[in-house]
C-alpha cells in the first residue's frame, strides 16, 4: 500500500469537472484509491464521483491518498501528477 499527501492548488478547488477528471483517471486503474480529508473525517473513493464531491475540498485542503492493488505505483504516480498539475488549470 502506498500513502502520500497532496494539497489542492487550483483556485476553484476540487470542483465538479476536476472531480470527474480524477474519477476518470482513477477508474483506469485496478487498485483501490482512497482520499482522506482529515479535518472533517471524510474518506472518499477516487473512483466514485459523488464520493469525491463529498470531500468539498477547496483550494489549500490537504488530502491523504492511499492506493492499494496490483498497479498501485502507476496509480499513485498518476494521481499525484493530476493534483500537482492543478487539473490542467494552472
Amino acid at each position: 500500500m502506498l500513502r502520500g499527501e497532496v494539497t489542492i492548488i487550483n483556485r476553484l478547488g476540487l470542483h465538479a469537472r476536476a472531480a470527474a477528471q480524477l474519477v476518470r483517471l482513477s477508474s483506469g486503474f485496478k487498485s483501490r484509491i482512497l482520499l482522506h480529508r482529515k479535518d472533517n473525517a471524510v474518506v472518499a473513493d477516487a473512483k466514485s464521483i459523488l464520493s469525491v464531491l463529498t470531500l468539498a475540498a477547496a483550494q489549500g485542503s490537504v488530502l491523504e491518498i492511499e492506493v492499494e492493488g496490483a498497479d498501485e505505483q502507476a496509480a499513485f504516480d498518476a494521481v499525484l501528477e493530476i493534483f500537482g498539475d492543478g487539473f490542467g488549470e494552472l
Binding site: N40, A41, V42, V43, A44, D45, S51
Partner: peptide, 10 residues
Amino acid sequence: EILAPQITLH
C-alpha cells in the same frame, strides 16, 4: 448528538 464521533465512508 453533536459530540458523537463521526466519519464519512464510501
